[in-house]
Simulated scan of single mutants.
Amino acid sequence: MIRFEGVSRRFAGADRPAVDGIDLAIAEGSTCVLIGPSGCGKSTTLRMVNRLVEPDNGRVLLDGRDVAGVDPVQLRRGIGYVLQGIGLFPHRNVADNVATVPRLLGWKRARTADRVDEMLALVGLDPKDYRDRRPDELSGGQRQRVGVARALAADPAILLMDEPFGAVDPVARDRLQVEIGAILRRLKKTVIIVTHDIDEAMRMGDRVVLMREGRIVQADTPDRVLAAPADGFVESFVGEDRALRRLALTRAGAIAVPGDPGDAPGITGDTSLKDALALLLSSGAEHLAVTGGDGPAVLTLTAIRDTASRES
Rank of each mutant, 00 (worst) to 15 (best):
residue 217 V to T: 11
residue 207 R to F: 13
residue 190 T to K: 11
residue 225 V to W: 00
residue 212 R to Q: 14
residue 209 V to R: 00
residue 192 I to A: 13
residue 235 E to P: 01
residue 200 E to F: 10
residue 215 R to Q: 14
residue 191 V to W: 07
residue 215 R to G: 08
residue 200 E to Q: 13
residue 216 I to Q: 08
residue 193 I to F: 12
residue 224 R to Y: 01
residue 203 R to V: 14
residue 196 H to S: 12
residue 188 K to E: 15
residue 226 L to E: 07
residue 195 T to F: 04
residue 188 K to Q: 15
residue 236 S to P: 02
residue 193 I to T: 10
residue 197 D to H: 08
residue 192 I to V: 15
residue 189 K to G: 08
residue 234 V to N: 05
residue 199 D to P: 03
residue 235 E to S: 14
residue 238 V to L: 10
residue 226 L to K: 09
residue 220 D to P: 03
residue 198 I to W: 06
residue 197 D to E: 04
residue 193 I to D: 05
residue 202 M to R: 06
residue 203 R to N: 13
residue 216 I to Y: 08
residue 190 T to Y: 13
residue 207 R to S: 11
residue 195 T to G: 02
residue 215 R to P: 04
residue 200 E to R: 14
residue 234 V to C: 09
residue 196 H to V: 10
residue 208 V to W: 09
residue 232 G to R: 13
residue 226 L to V: 01
residue 227 A to M: 03
residue 187 L to P: 01
residue 230 A to E: 05
residue 221 T to Y: 08
residue 217 V to F: 05
residue 205 G to P: 07
residue 235 E to L: 05
residue 230 A to S: 13
residue 200 E to N: 09
residue 214 G to I: 12
residue 212 R to L: 15
residue 203 R to F: 12
residue 215 R to N: 09
residue 205 G to Q: 06
residue 215 R to M: 10
residue 185 R to I: 07
residue 196 H to M: 09
residue 217 V to M: 13
residue 207 R to W: 05
residue 191 V to C: 08
residue 229 P to E: 05
residue 209 V to E: 03
residue 196 H to C: 13
residue 185 R to C: 08
residue 195 T to H: 06
residue 225 V to S: 06
residue 205 G to R: 07
residue 221 T to S: 15
residue 188 K to A: 14
residue 230 A to H: 02
residue 222 P to W: 06
residue 237 F to E: 04
residue 196 H to Y: 11
residue 223 D to T: 10
residue 229 P to R: 04
residue 238 V to M: 07
residue 218 Q to H: 03
residue 233 F to N: 02
residue 188 K to H: 15
residue 204 M to V: 09
residue 218 Q to P: 03
residue 192 I to R: 11
residue 231 D to V: 06
residue 218 Q to N: 00
residue 220 D to W: 05
residue 235 E to F: 04
residue 190 T to H: 11
residue 218 Q to C: 00
residue 221 T to C: 09
residue 219 A to R: 09
residue 188 K to C: 02
residue 223 D to G: 12
residue 212 R to P: 01
residue 222 P to S: 05
residue 194 V to P: 10
residue 201 A to K: 02
residue 211 M to K: 10
residue 198 I to L: 06
residue 227 A to C: 12
residue 205 G to L: 03
residue 197 D to P: 04
residue 194 V to N: 06
residue 218 Q to S: 02
residue 232 G to H: 05
residue 209 V to T: 04
residue 187 L to G: 05
residue 201 A to W: 06
residue 189 K to V: 09
residue 187 L to M: 11
residue 185 R to G: 03
residue 209 V to L: 00
residue 198 I to V: 15
residue 194 V to M: 04
residue 199 D to K: 06
residue 198 I to E: 01
residue 194 V to T: 09
residue 207 R to H: 13
residue 203 R to D: 04
residue 186 R to A: 14
residue 200 E to I: 08
residue 212 R to H: 14
residue 194 V to D: 10
residue 214 G to H: 11
residue 208 V to C: 02
residue 199 D to Y: 07
residue 218 Q to L: 02
residue 220 D to G: 04
residue 229 P to S: 00
residue 191 V to R: 11
residue 214 G to M: 12
residue 232 G to L: 09
residue 192 I to D: 11
residue 228 A to H: 09
residue 218 Q to G: 01
residue 225 V to Y: 08
residue 221 T to E: 01
residue 216 I to L: 06
residue 198 I to A: 01
residue 225 V to M: 01
